[in-house]
């Protein structure tokens, strides 16, 4: 083991005190008798106290360092684990369409029936689109983690209304009971500072996800309310739910539960939502029970609300 100077250093004050006392004793300035009242003893005691203080500082620093090393190592392990899980999932997601394309190309060589060839070509096209989607979405996530948000005051009532209308248009009639619950005036929702387009994507993804993992007859509700200095947006459904084993991973890129393999999806939507919410200084959490349903709750910091008089003046001038 290598000798570290900082371990020896705390003994220097004691050593120095002993040398001083020995020298003073030798030249006859003091007469060292190891009595408690002796100046020599006091010098040595001071040295000892300094040694104890230095050692304890050093020990506590070492403990902090060890803790930091352990937590860094843990973080590194977590990161490595996450990374290798991500690569495994990417491998899996790309392997399937690639295998499909390989088989299709092999078939194209031998099959001559024009109709069958057309089907094969369509299949290749579909698989290629699937892979482009994955690559584009991953790129989007990478860009989003660093790009500057284009912030402006966002009227959440309009935004949520837009998302609701869009999803409503896409959902076949009578298949799901879609609900929108916003606070009635005069309360309303405070504005938030954010990137309107990204927030639109985030809320759309949440609502679309809820629709994907519900069955005909289920209810999907989009609700928002102000709470303290935040705005809470909730998407609640009575769908198939998420198992407790899957819950910790649902925000990871490309993660897809075995239970939903037959429902199309890339496993990127929620990762994107989480990133968007976090970039806005918000929080997102999920509660779910198998076959009972899921609630995703997003909290976003509200913009400072003007006092009632100013609001009144604003609303009058707006109208």
């Amino acid at each position: 083991m290598k000798i570290r100077w900082e371990w020896i250093a705390p003994f220097f004050p004691t050593l120095l005190a002993m040398i001083i006392v020995t020298v003073l004793d030798a030249v006859g300035i003091i007469d060292f008798s190891s009595s408690i009242h002796d100046p020599g003893t006091l010098i040595i005691l001071t040295g000892l106290i300094l040694t104890i203080i230095a050692s304890s500082i050093l020990l506590s620093q070492e403990a902090v360092r060890q803790m930091r090393v352990t937590s860094l190592r843990q973080a590194q392990q977590d990161y490595d684990g996450e990374r290798s899980r991500f690569l495994r999932r990417l491998d899996h997601e790309l392997k399937n369409p690639l295998t499909g394309i390989k088989l299709a190309v092999a078939n194209l060589v031998t099959i001559e029936d024009p109709e069958a060839r057309e089907t094969i070509r369509d299949n290749i096209h579909l698989q290629v689109m699937r892979m482009s989607r994955i690559v584009t979405d991953l790129r989007k996530i990478a860009d989003l983690s660093t790009q500057k948000l284009e912030e402006s005051a966002v009227n959440l009532e309009d935004l949520l209304g837009d998302v609701y209308a869009q999803v409503h248009e896409e959902t076949p009639a009578n298949e799901r009971d879609l609900q929108l619950n916003l606070p009635e005036p005069p309360q309303g929702l405070p504005n938030i500072m954010g990137d309107q387009d990204l927030l639109l994507v985030a809320i759309y993804n949440l609502l679309n996800n809820a629709l994907k993992y519900t069955r005909a007859g289920d209810t999907v509700a989009l609700r928002a309310y102000a709470q303290d200095e935040t705005v809470v947006i909730e998407v609640t459904d009575t769908g198939i739910g998420i198992s407790s084993a899957d819950l910790p991973y649902i925000w990871d890129e490309l993660y897809r539960s075995e239970r939903v393999r037959d429902i199309p999806g890339s496993g990127i939507g929620l990762a994107l939502v989480k990133l968007i919410i976090e970039r806005h200084g918000g929080e997102i959490e999920v509660q779910s029970q198998i076959d009972q349903g899921t609630t995703v709750r997003v909290c976003l910091p509200a913009m400072l609300v003007a006092d009632p008089v100013t609001r009144l003046v604003q609303s009058v001038s707006n109208s």
């Binding site: 989007k140 998302v163 869009q166 309107q196 639109l200 994507v201 679309n208």
Partner: peptide, 15 residues
């Protein structure tokens, strides 16, 4: 302009 093609994007353009 946006570089993405989400279904909800049409609304982003309209806004």
């Amino acid at each position: 302009v946006w570089g993405w093609d989400y279904p909800v994007g049409g609304r982003a353009v309209d806004t």
